[in-house]
Amino acid sequence: MTVEVERSDRHVMEVTNGLAAEFSGVLARPVVSEAVLDARRDLEGQIVPEALSEMLHQLARHRLGNLSTARKASVG
């Protein structure tokens, strides 16, 4: 289901691809995809459509950074 939604939305697909590459080796792609989809749902109706891609990237990247830091702290 996640993959179908990801592929149906150009913004989600582009942001997921970029962040999956950025967090490669740190977070699995399904984790990245879920964070992007969650951010997309949170932003829906909150911002102008022209800003969606940038805001989606920023919000998902912020959340993934926090998740990555939390995981490192729990391992260390």
Rank of each mutant, 00 (worst) to 15 (best):
L27C: 02
R7P: 02
E44R: 15
R10G: 04
A73F: 12
L27S: 00
R61G: 01
T16W: 00
Q46N: 09
R41A: 10
M1N: 08
L64W: 04
A51S: 14
R71G: 07
V36E: 01
R10S: 06
V75F: 13
E44D: 11
S68G: 12
G18M: 03
F23K: 01
N17P: 07
Q58M: 08
E34H: 15
S53C: 13
T16F: 02
S33D: 00
H11Y: 15
L56M: 01
V32W: 04
L19R: 06
P49G: 14
F23I: 07
L43I: 04
G45K: 02
G76T: 14
D42I: 01
G65F: 03
T2G: 11
Q58P: 03
V5Q: 01
G76P: 15
R7L: 13
H57K: 14
S33H: 00
D38L: 14
E14M: 13
V75R: 14
G76E: 14
G45E: 06
A73I: 12
Q58D: 12
T69F: 12
E22K: 14
V12H: 03
V15Y: 01
V12Q: 03
L59F: 08
H57N: 11
V3P: 02
P49H: 14
L37V: 06
D9M: 08
V15F: 02
T69L: 09
G25W: 03
V5N: 03
A35I: 05
A73K: 14
R40N: 10
R7S: 07
L59S: 05
M55K: 03
L37K: 09
D9I: 08
R7K: 04
R10C: 00
H62L: 09
K72G: 01
E50M: 11
S24N: 13
E22Y: 07
L37R: 04
V48Y: 12
A60E: 01
E4P: 00
L52M: 14
P49W: 15
R10V: 03
L37E: 10
K72Q: 13
S74I: 08
A60M: 05
F23N: 04
R10T: 02
R40V: 02
V5L: 06
N66V: 10
G18C: 05
V31C: 11
G18Q: 07
E4G: 00
D42P: 07
V36P: 05
L43N: 04
T2K: 08
R61F: 02
T16R: 04
